[in-house]
Design a protein around this nucleic acid. Sequence first.
DNA 1: CCAAAAGTGTTCAACATACACCCATGA
DNA 2: TCATGGGTGTATGTTGAACACTTTTGG
Lengths: 232, 232
Amino acid sequence: MLDQYRQQHPYLLALDSIIFGFDGEGLKVLLVRRGVEAETWSLMGGWLQPDESLEQAAARILFELTGLTNVYLEQLYAFGDPHRDPIVRTISVAYFSLVKVADYESKLSETFQARWFSIYDLPPLLFDHGDMVSLAIRRLRYKAAQHPIGFELLPEKFTIPQLKKLYDAIYNTEFDRRNFSRKILSTHLLIKLDEKQKGFSKKGAFYYRVDTEKYRQLNHSFLNFIASPLAP
Amino acid sequence: MLDQYRQQHPYLLALDSIIFGFDGEGLKVLLVRRGVEAETWSLMGGWLQPDESLEQAAARILFELTGLTNVYLEQLYAFGDPHRDPIVRTISVAYFSLVKVADYESKLSETFQARWFSIYDLPPLLFDHGDMVSLAIRRLRYKAAQHPIGFELLPEKFTIPQLKKLYDAIYNTEFDRRNFSRKILSTHLLIKLDEKQKGFSKKGAFYYRVDTEKYRQLNHSFLNFIASPLAP
DNA sequence: CCAAAAGTGTTCAACATACACCCATGA
DNA sequence: TCATGGGTGTATGTTGAACACTTTTGG
């Protein structure tokens, strides 16, 4: 009975992470330099270990580079073209994650040469990593359009104008300031703080934070929510 | 330099297909009987071959069971829990597909013992195949809510009431007959035929077919379309 | 006191929902 | 002729886009 297993070819299984960050201006992706070919950048990646699930492996690899835990992590797609890695056939499961840039700065591992790149100005990437990034951007746009996912990229406290800038960056457009804030606040997912942002504008914008309880509930009920509208 | 590859463990890579069909009444999933354990049903699956991409392998496996080509096929998720297959660690990439039941009936391969099951009344499934089906149903609902994907489950010619029944089945609800037809027709994706359905109702409903050209264009521009609304 | 950014309010059009009503036809 | 399902029309409320106006405060 084990025969049906024994006859089969095994394959190397890699994980690659598209790590998004927002620095207040533009949407960025974290890339690492390949030791081998100095001019080529690549996604942070690694190999699946025998005792790990795919998600555990992706989280471990993210931790090794950034030192971050508890970050938003979502499976993107499995890439398995026979020639995607020209040396040895490798299947790669790509994950994308959303990190708060400020948290990362302090914990950056020196083992890797890493840099943030604007998603609109990427260098040539290894293998099919360019496809992975493109797909991740599309998925992020898709998801953020219906899911309150943007907060994951901002610090605990943020202002509505900051949030708008993030959405502007994600969709490479300019949302209407007034409509944006109304729409965001209508979700009742944000809690207004007494504190105002200083230094940036003269009037100063109020800080908000996410109502984590409601946020979690919404993530759970999300699938019921999206199933209701009908639109073929 | 090959060392970094040689040190790594390889894994078996399987593909499993969630095959959806609609018989005019309910949404169905095609399951096959496992020769080994007579009481257990499972998804149609197979192994990745060295010269295939993941999608090619999924299409091949679907063909082997149903004899169908050119069916809607979409990658669902990669399942990689270390113990999902208790015998040998296997990573499975699940695909879901939408087939026209009528096409299938004639070409059914006799090699497999296959049967359609209502998605609301499934037998116990092998390994994590139950999770795969649940996820596929969620994904189908998600997708069908914004994407004209339902046609893939119907024959070339179909009536609006048939289409409504399909959506009722997908969402396990009852859409308003009048609003449904208005909404569908407002997409201008359907072409009305002169022919009427006979036998089912006294008046008879007009047949429609998909405007394949528009359908294709819509699939291409889909991401632009869904990116526009803003909703965290 | 004024420029610049933040915040509030108003209008209008588009769309979804909930129905009422008429149509065609086989039994 | 009438029951049954198919098709069209209409009123009402909700939502989103566009944009005018007021508020705050550092220079």
